[in-house]
C-alpha cells in the first residue's frame, strides 16, 4: 500500500533516502518556508485582528460589570442617605412633638396654677369677710348679752330689793363682773 501511494503521488523525498520521513533533511527547507509563512500569517492575524477583538469584548464586559456595580453602589448610598434623612426627620418630628407636648403641659399647669391661686385669693378674701362677719356677730351678740345681763340683773335686783336699781349702777356692776 505504501509503495503504491509513493508512486502515485509522484515525487516523494523518502524515495531517494528511503529513511525515516521526519529526519529527511531534503524536506526541511520546504517545511520551514511554509511554516514561516503560515505561522507568520497566523501571528499577524491573531495579534492584529482576532485577539484585540476578543480583548475588546472582554474589556467591554468587565467595564459594563464594573459600571453596573458602581451604579449599584451609588444607588445603595443614595438609599442609605434617604434612610438616614428619613430617620433624622422622624427623630426631629419626635423631638418637636415632645417639645410641643412639654410646652402645652407647662402652659396648662401654669394656667391651672394661676386659676388656683386666684381661687385661693378669692376664698381668702371671702374667708376674711366671713371671719369679720363672725367677729362682728360675736361682738353684737356680746353686746346683746350685756344688755340681757343688765336687764336680768336689774330685774333680779328689783325682785329682791323691791325697787329698780339705777341703770347706771347696774351697767357698772355688769361691766365689773364681765371684766372679772
Amino acid at each position: 500500500m505504501a509503495q503504491t501511494t509513493h508512486t502515485s503521488t509522484g515525487h516523494a523525498p523518502a524515495e531517494h533516502g528511503g529513511g525515516f520521513p521526519p529526519f529527511d533533511s531534503s524536506t526541511f527547507g520546504g517545511q520551514l518556508l511554509w511554516l514561516a509563512i503560515a505561522f507568520g500569517a497566523l501571528y499577524v492575524l491573531m495579534s492584529k485582528v482576532a485577539l484585540p477583538r476578543v480583548a475588546a469584548i472582554l474589556e467591554e464586559r468587565s467595564n459594563r460589570i464594573e459600571g453596573d456595580l458602581d451604579k449599584a453602589a451609588k444607588l445603595k448610598s443614595e438609599t442609605d442617605a434617604a434612610i438616614a434623612a428619613y430617620e433624622k426627620a422622624l427623630a426631629d418630628a419626635k423631638a418637636k412633638a415632645q417639645a410641643i407636648a412639654g410646652e402645652t403641659r407647662d402652659k396648662l399647669a401654669a394656667e391651672s396654677d394661676a386659676r388656683r391661686k386666684a381661687l385661693e385669693a378669692d376664698l381668702n378674701v371671702k374667708l376674711a369677710a366671713a371671719e369679720q362677719q363672725i367677729v362682728d356677730g360675736k361682738q353684737k351678740a356680746m353686746q346683746n348679752v350685756r344688755g340681757i345681763a343688765v336687764d336680768a340683773a336689774a330685774a333680779i335686783v328689783e325682785r329682791l330689793a323691791g325697787q329698780a336699781p339705777a341703770t347706771d349702777e347696774v351697767e357698772a356692776a355688769v361691766s365689773r363682773s364681765l371684766a372679772q
Binding site: 500500500m1 505504501a2 501511494t5 509513493h6 515525487h11 523518502a14 520521513p21 520546504g30
Partner: peptide, 13 residues
C-alpha cells in the same frame, strides 16, 4: 501489515 511510518511521508501537491 501497513507501514506505520508511511503516515509521516510528505506528499507533494
Amino acid at each position: 501489515m501497513a507501514d506505520p511510518i508511511h503516515q509521516f511521508q510528505l506528499k507533494t501537491i
